[in-house]
């Protein structure tokens, strides 16, 4: 795959609630290329989560199109489950499967969906766990881990499917401050390894350090987008300036 291949393409995406009374997304257009780390920022309620969750159709858009690797996944006839295998997602609330231990959390999908043998899936899982420094937790249950550990394992669980893109919805917002760093470290390492990432976050440091593009949203649309250093140094729109003056 070429570095400038368009991985995700979003055309005039709208998501309305309550028969149009709430316009969570009001015509979003954007392209995400392989290898990009796109950071989405914006005030609360501006539609960041709705946009991110539309990308794997956890949220059904009201109208508009989404193309993933050239296929229009908003087409009702398409088998979305197959495409979701290639789109990893990490949630604010971690959402590890409470009934399974860590190893089973990671190997379940590769074994059932990719038909990996238990041996192969376990080997991959242990390698990934070692990469985030949690190999000793393989036989623990989610309830026995700290938030930071849980989130690192949630990242590993998504990576075990060997996705082409990873979506993060405020992955550090539910963490105690002292655990934010360990999760950001894993995400930065992932970004440097070339993974395509779309990240909703309030961590401006992360955006500056590894982001290749910042999308600033407000009122259900992308108001402004730019390369991070340029964006933070000289935001073009008044709304972006107002927002940054509040959070920086």
């Amino acid at each position: 795959m070429n570095a400038d291949d368009v991985l995700l393409k979003v055309v005039n995406l709208k998501k309305h609630y309550n028969n149009g009374a709430v316009k969570a997304l009001d015509g979003v257009n954007c392209e995400i290329r392989a290898g990009e780390v796109v950071v989405i920022i914006g005030p609360s309620g501006c539609g960041k989560s709705t946009f991110l969750r539309s990308l794997n159709l956890l949220e059904m858009p009201t109208s508009g199109e989404i193309y993933f690797e050239g296929d229009m996944i908003t087409d009702p006839k398409i088998d979305i489950n197959l495409h979701r295998q290639k789109i990893g997602m990490v949630f604010q609330q971690f959402n590890l499967f409470n009934n399974l231990n860590i190893l089973r959390n990671i190997t379940l999908a590769p074994m059932k969906l990719l038909k990996q043998s238990q041996q192969e899936a376990t080997k991959n899982a242990m390698e990934l766990l070692a990469r985030v420094g949690l190999a000793d937790k393989a036989n623990h249950y989610p309830s026995q881990l700290s938030g930071g550990q849980t989130q690192r394992i949630a990242i590993v669980r998504a990576l075990a499917m060997k996705p082409d893109v990873m979506l993060f919805d405020e992955p550090t917002s539910a963490l105690d401050p002292e655990m934010v760093g360990e999760v950001l470290e894993v995400m930065k390492e992932l970004a440097r390894s070339g993974m395509t990432m779309v990240v909703v976050t309030h961590e401006m440091g992360f955006a500056r350090e590894v982001g290749s593009r910042v999308l600033f949203m407000e009122g259900g649309v992308i108001v402004e987008q730019n390369e991070p250093n340029a964006f933070f140094a000289a935001p073009q729109s008044q709304r972006a300036r107002d927002f940054l003056s509040k959070v920086l």
Binding site: L58, H83, R84, F94, N95, F97, L100, L108, A154
Partner: peptide, 25 residues
């Protein structure tokens, strides 16, 4: 929790496998 359901769906599991492996237990 709804998040358990979403996490399973986001990995590519359909409705029934999600029920079977994650929700029903």
């Amino acid at each position: 929790d709804e998040g358990q359901f979403e996490a399973s769906r986001s990995l590519g599991f359909g409705y029934l496998p999600t029920m079977r492996y994650v929700i029903v237990p």
